[in-house]
Structures are given as C-alpha cells and as structure tokens.
C-alpha cells in the first residue's frame, strides 16, 4: 500500500506501471469471473437455481451443503481481497472525492448483498437468487468502472 503515500503517482516511473499492471489484471479477473460463473454456476435465475437445487428433468443433482459452503467461503475470500485492493487504488486515483466515497460504498454493499442473498437463497428462500444476480452484476459493473476510471486517471489524465 506504499502507493497511498506517493504524491505524484502519474509521474512515478516505478509505481505507474506497477499499478497499471495490477488494474489490468483486476480487469481480466472480473471478465474471466463472468465467463466462469456463466459456465459453471449460471448467470440467469433458472441456471443458478438448477445449480443450487438441481433439476430432475435435466438429471442435475442439487449442490450439497458442504459444496455450497465451500463455494461461498471462496467467493468471500476472493471478493474481499480483490475489492480491498481495487478500492485502495481507486480512492488514491480519485483523490478521495465525495463521488469516490459513494462508489466505494456501492461496491462493497452490492458485494455484501450478493453474498448474503446467495446464502439466503440456498438455505431459506429460493427467490433470493434474483437479488443475488442483480447485486452480482452491480458489483462487477462497479468494479469494472473503478478499474477503468483508475487506469484512465493513471495514464490519460
């Protein structure tokens, strides 16, 4: 987190490419995550429900409790590390503006809503799958915005 202490990041020969690389790989991760989720978990209410609860017509078994908790546990870990790193860079690049505060709140809250909705959908109420998907897309869009905005500020501002 040393970049939070450097005054002029845009003209720092070491930190500029380092942060540029980090942001580029965060972008790649976010896009890859969408493809992986689409193929292995589902990105529509019907496909997510089929993954979680199975589908007799398609001979799909439901996800076991242990497998679900394992998936949820990993989702929490990856999203917290990714968002924390991204938000630190984004806050620095937007010079801590009020807009940045709103975006950071939106980013973290939508991710938390997505994680909680998934848990509630699996254990209590299937309809929460819709909330999960809405918040999942929202946090990905917000994270994509943060990465692209930070890259723009780093290289073109």
């Amino acid at each position: 987190m040393r970049f939070t202490l450097i005054k002029d990041l845009k003209h720092d020969a070491i930190m500029k490419p380092v942060l540029g690389g980090l942001l580029f790989f965060i972008l790649l991760y976010l896009v890859a995550d969408l493809f992986v989720k689409q193929s292995s978990f589902g990105l529509t209410p019907d496909t997510v429900k089929a993954t979680l609860f199975g589908n007799e017509e398609e001979f799909l078994d439901p996800l076991s409790k242990a497998a679900f908790l394992e998936f949820w546990h990993m989702e929490i870990f990856f999203s917290m590390m990714l968002l924390f790193t991204l938000s630190a860079v984004y806050i620095r690049m937007s010079e801590g503006s009020k807009k940045a505060l709103v975006v950071v709140n939106l980013l973290f809250i939508s991710t938390l809503v997505s994680l909680f909705s998934l848990f509630i959908a699996y254990f209590f109420k299937q309809n929460f799958v819709t909330f999960y998907l809405l918040s999942f897309h929202l946090w990905h869009i917000t994270a994509l915005f943060c990465s692209l905005y930070s890259l723009k500020r780093l290289y073109f501002a």
């Binding site: 968002l83 938000s87 806050i91 801590g96 505060l101 950071v104 938390l112």
Partner: peptide, 10 residues
C-alpha cells in the same frame, strides 16, 4: 481519509 476508513471497515 474517510474513504479509506470505509474501505477498512468493510
């Protein structure tokens, strides 16, 4: 900064 505080709290 306030935004960093939020980030850490989250």
């Amino acid at each position: 900064h306030k935004a960093y505080k939020y980030s850490i709290l989250y």
